[in-house]
Design a protein around this nucleic acid. Structure first.
Lengths: 341, 341
DNA sequence: ATTTAAAATACAATCGATTGTATTTAAATT
DNA sequence: AATTTAAATACAATCGATTGTATTTTAAAT
């Protein structure tokens, strides 16, 4: 038994031919005769040969791997985006390396570093909540390293973003609540340094404006949108008279609030109607089921990956693009105040 | 501006020294003087040098990367296991590559192939539902390729498994239902080719036996435990007289059944009590909240990764181990029939 | 000042696959 | 059979970092 894993040289030696011929045969080059190809392939199988991708990558200067950085993979949304990414990458013959920033800029920088130095062919990233300056990203970009941003927009020159139309989705959700008869709608918003939450707030306000409803600043609650934030918001909300609707910038906070309100005997949607954002799995199961926005997770992964592939091929560099996916409003019981039929 | 990414040779040339010195300096070898180290590090920074891990890996014959294969990352349980894996790997200076088998053996084989040929240093795998024979795994194992199995046991010689005690967890759950007054308990089981589901069924039966309850084969329903399977099982269950408890081998099926039964006016837990398995997020939210088993996901990831690191270090190979994590029964409303206090 | 030991650096081979160029072999053409 | 052309294969450099060995430089010891 040989010690290490077999190489093309082992095959070449045992067949008394040159390793270059073996290499060409194994990638089915026209420069090798049928006959020797067969011999080589057979021998390769016999020895249990597997091409050493590290050596191959070094020579060809590509890794056939793309990197993905997300805040955390245990979030429904991101794991579904990753499913889309993986599927597309797999078809294109690429591997996917995944890292989580845990919403810290430190780990984000680290991961980017690691990915770059292992020469992934490009990166898909949803920036961390802490990321407010973008120099670390620009540096790589200027080196010609392909980076695509998804979900959380990043306005860096020459960068491609794949997003859903947060403004439209929020506008639609709010409008829906209004159509269901809500007049006093509170908005649960997230950290304002994230463009995304600013957009959602904007959509909310625009809808109010359209229907001539006054925009009251103290009707917009800012938090990190965790479950406990939702509960806190619910308490706060009870102090305002007449609130009859909530548009939350995510499902988790909405659910936190609903749970608290239900425990206080408030009926949803009759007393207060709810709409969330993200279509978490729990949103379908909770009672009443939560009206929400499908963020097109899987599609987003597919789109981002396709754009990355384009960018990898066109070495051209700086092509700024913005891909907007259409969000889908999913209407469930938490907002249905008018009896159907 | 130079075209490609800078290498140690670029640094060496511009400093008029040898590249081997640069290499040693950058890995802080004692063989390089302080003075030159400083010069080199400075120049490296100046040029924006990043070590080419591909070249490094080729030379050292390791990738500092471990591969993970799971059925699907969008499953709560797996994404949390992966969090544990990532965290541990990160601390050990390893990267993590993730692939999903989508519960097909074909993709499982493919991924293993890819991982092997990109020379990951080892693999953590939760085998697919289709995997009944293990030759493909054994082959790699015999080549000295470190593989650790988690969650879904794999009885291959020389393989290390990291599991929770499915038997005990199931026994405890069933016993709990009995203690809550259930006498006629149905079990929703999964594909019997998976050891895991056999263990869970065994735990269920053993608990019945302990309390002198007759084990009836037609009280054990086998399915793929998807939500729709749960619903189907619920229908089937209604045809049996007197069922007053269900122990499901996963939460998803339990929830599918509960939803259906509730819609038929059956009260949970008063008419039929429920216990599930896996502690999905929705289980806490559904009404009534579902009694379930914490599978120690994050801990499992940590344990599996630590064992893999051990195995990577001890080139010794074949060290069979079995790491059993203690499951935790989480009692919620779906099974509380006796009033508390 | 010389010798000796130690420290710092240079040289060169190597990891395994790829690829441009050169050479040999076989087939085709006259 | 001799020459041309094409097909098949061999040779050799390369990707970038690592590492054992050899050489030079510096410091220490006599």
């Amino acid at each position: 038994m040989k010690k290490g894993k077999p190489t093309i040289h082992d095959i070449a030696r045992s067949l008394e031919i040159d390793s270059s011929t073996v290499s060409r045969a194994l990638s089915d080059s026209a420069r090798v005769s049928k006959k020797t190809k067969v011999r080589i392939v057979e021998k390769a199988k016999e020895l249990g040969y597997q091409r050493n991708m590290i050596a191959s990558n070094l020579r060809t200067n590509k890794s056939n791997t793309i990197g993905v950085i997300v805040p955390r993979i245990s979030r429904q949304f991101f794991s579904r985006v990753i499913s889309g990414i993986e599927e597309t990458a797999y078809k294109g013959g690429y591997d996917v390396v995944i890292g989580q920033s845990l919403d810290t800029i430190e780990r984000e920088k680290n991961l980017l570093q690691t990915f770059y130095s292992s020469r992934v062919d490009g990166v898909l990233i949803s920036i961390s909540m802490e990321t407010t300056s973008f120099e670390h990203l620009e540096a790589y970009k200027n080196h010609g390293f392909p980076i695509i941003f998804f979900d959380r927009p990043c306005n860096v020159a020459g960068c491609t973003n794949v997003l859903i139309d947060d403004f439209k989705a929020s506008f639609d959700s709010t409008e829906h609540l209004i159509n269901e008869g809500c007049k006093d709608i509170v908005h649960f918003s997230g950290p304002q340094n994230l463009e995304l939450y600013r957009q959602r707030a904007k959509g909310y306000m625009e809808a109010l404006k359209k229907y001539g409803i006054e925009i009251r600043d103290h009707y917009i609650f800012e938090s990190n949108l965790m479950q406990e934030d939702g509960e806190a918001s619910a308490k706060k909300l009870l102090k305002l008279a007449n609130v009859d609707g909530v548009f939350s910038a995510n499902d988790v906070a909405a659910i936190g609030a609903m749970k608290y309100l239900k425990s206080k005997g408030i009926r949803i949607p009759d007393d207060i109607a709810f709409a969330g954002f993200s279509n978490e799995l729990i949103s379908e199961v909770i009672e009443p089921s939560l009206t929400t926005v499908n963020q097109r997770d899987v599609e987003m992964g597919i789109a981002a990956t396709s754009l990355l592939f384009e960018q990898i091929k066109n070495k051209s560099g700086k092509i700024q693009q913005k891909e907007m996916l259409d969000p889908e409003l999913i209407i469930r019981n938490s907002s249905k105040r008018k009896s159907t039929i």
